[in-house]
Amino acid sequence: MPGWLLFLSGVVALAGIYAVLTLALNLHFGYGGLINFGIVAFFAIGGYTYTILTMPPPGLGEAYRFGFGFPWWLAFPAAGTVAAVFALVIGLPTLRVRGEYLLIVTFAFAEVVRSSLTNEAWLTNGARGFYSVVQPFRDLMDGQTYQVFLAVLILAVLAICYLVARFVGTAPFGRTLRAVRENEDVALSVSKDVYSFRLRAFVLGSIIAGLAGAMYVWYMTIAVPAIFAAEVTFAVWIALVIGGTGSNRGAILGAFVLLGAQQAVKFIQAPAEMAAVISSIQLMLEGLLLVVILRFRPMGLLPEQSPPPPRERKQPEAERLQKAEGI
């Protein structure tokens, strides 16, 4: 198997995972206007749920108490479910108040989750984390073929998530959500339960983020707190802004552009002692990219487009009246 194919499938797999996460954020912020600054929390919850459910029971000298040894197809949906439960718990008290509070609460929640992952060793094995996480269909092929297969599998999940997000976006639910985002008072005046719409969008987005987390541990084959740092949240936000908030296709494009740029930085030849500087410069460039995009293309590369109006099922009023009057 050629080296470039392996490298490419690695990049595509990671970009696919980020694209799923960006779709989740697009559902939160793009459609619902919910400023979730802690999307990494749901990502991490999904990843750890999957890992803990599939891990074999702990051996001697391990800090964690629970390993259930479930198969992956049971643990994968469970990752989404647990993320949904947490989203419900966070969303219930905070979605009643306006935007900025949700920003701070989710930001703080991500920090709490991250520190719990490090400190609650009985559940998460602490900073050491878990190694050799169960991957789906791993036994069927050799390591190199599996790299390519995993990329394809992740792209397939991405496609499904995209179809779901597109369906939700054009369904009455998505239209109402956008109406709530644009003008809450108008939505209220046509008796839409604003709070319930927001809560459902928040939970649905978090489910997708949780599934992305499970795929992330497939890809990394480890689950340690360090891979769920706050940088993930901001990378996803940057991807969404690059692509265009409110646009599902933009979200995917943004994730691929950002991850492609990140991987390109890796080709810069630099001595090993410069590694820390290079990584801080990488973050700096991400910040710069965001500022430049906001300055010159504030709507993103693929701006949001209003979905077509729902098809007219009844005849236009005037025609019907004319017929009734026999004109």
Partner: peptide
């Protein structure tokens, strides 16, 4: 320069600005 894009975009910009400042200090 980003003011007219509204407060949410300003928050996100400030995250980018934070990364730039942080990156410069760390470099």
């Amino acid at each position: 320069p980003v003011r007219r894009a509204g407060p949410v975009m300003l928050v996100i910009t400030s995250v980018g600005a934070a990364y730039i400042v942080h990156g410069v200090v760390e470099a």
